[in-house]
């Protein structure tokens, strides 16, 4: 056994309380595994672990009770099932995502596609960061994947406009009824006025309007930077709005780069942003 501790940690082996015993963190991108992959994980738990599989809070699975000498064999068994280990330590972690527009009727955006693309472009590049770096992708303002709690968070959003370009208003009032934040008021003729200061961009008015008199003027991702829970929790700062997938990938990549350049070992992105100034950091990221 010639595997040192850094290799173990970088390879998804997390030291547990008992000496020489590890938990293996298995990456489940966007939280979806095939039944066959789950069977393979079951076999790994039986053959190399203590026979249990743990669900992590960030959509990964962990097999506990694994010994360091099983490192190569576990990695081989995972690779054979099309799986790999999840990151630990000061690295970009596996992005977390909600079901998004694929499965959820409220989901505005394809969260799984963006999370998978972020995972492919940022995960496990091997370079160490000042601290851990988490990414969350959620399909609407309900924020089920908690984008504001992540170092970088993406939230599907639309900006509604009442302009009757695609259809005439019939004064049904369904838009005001559908709006959960009271951003839509109706005038004496029953026509809507949208107060964007109150709007949370969940798109329900756009989805409900039967004549398309309210439509999406802009749509895409809102970006939050520097969110962090754990000790001293704080929500991320809104840095950009209504960007497409391509720009989301660029911003995430740029945020990781800026964090590596400007961050000091041991500080989370939130602390780096506090130290260098939010506006300065956001400028560095957006370019």
């Amino acid at each position: 056994m010639a595997v040192d501790e850094a290799t173990l940690k970088g390879g998804g082996f997390i030291k547990l309380r008992e000496p020489e015993i590890f938990a293996v963190r298995i990456k489940i991108p966007v939280g979806d595994a095939t039944a066959e992959q789950l069977r393979a994980i079951s076999r790994i738990a039986d053959d190399f672990g203590d026979g249990t599989v743990h669900l992590t809070v960030r959509q990964c699975l962990e097999v506990r009770g694994v010994r360091a000498e099983s490192f190569d064999a576990v990695h081989a068994a995972l690779a054979a099932a099309g799986l790999g280990t999840g990151a630990c330590g000061p690295r970009v972690r596996v992005p977390v995502s909600c079901p998004g527009s694929t499965f959820c009727k409220r989901g505005l955006n394809d969260t799984r596609a963006l999370a998978a693309a972020l995972d492919a472009s940022l995960y496990g590049r091997g370079d160490l960061l000042p601290h851990k770096f988490k990414i969350g992708v959620t399909g609407c303002s309900a924020s089920c994947a908690k984008p504001q709690e992540n170092d970088v968070g993406f939230q599907g959003a639309v900006r509604p406009v009442f302009d009757e370009l695609e259809g005439a208003c019939i004064a049904c009032g369904v838009c005001a009824d559908a709006c959960p934040t009271g951003a839509i008021t109706l005038d004496a003729e029953g026509r809507p006025h949208i107060d964007l200061a109150l709007c949370d961009h969940d798109g329900r008015c756009v989805q409900a309007c039967p004549t398309r008199a309210i439509r999406a003027e802009a749509a895409g991702w809102r970006v939050f930077l520097g969110g962090c829970f754990g000790k001293n929790p704080r929500l991320g700062v809104l840095a950009e709005t209504f960007i497409d997938d391509h720009e989301a990938l660029r911003i995430a990549d740029s945020a990781v780069d800026a964090y590596r350049r400007l961050g000091v070992k041991g500080e989370r992105l939130r602390d780096t942003m506090d130290r260098v100034g939010h506006d300065h950091f956001i400028e560095e990221v957006l370019g």
Partner: peptide, 21 residues
């Protein structure tokens, strides 16, 4: 129902002429 059905019928190519409480 009122948030979903009228819009869904419109998306199917029908014209929503009136909708009122």
């Amino acid at each position: 129902p009122v948030r979903n059905v009228p819009r869904s019928l419109a998306d199917e190519g029908n014209a929503v002429l009136a909708l009122g409480k």
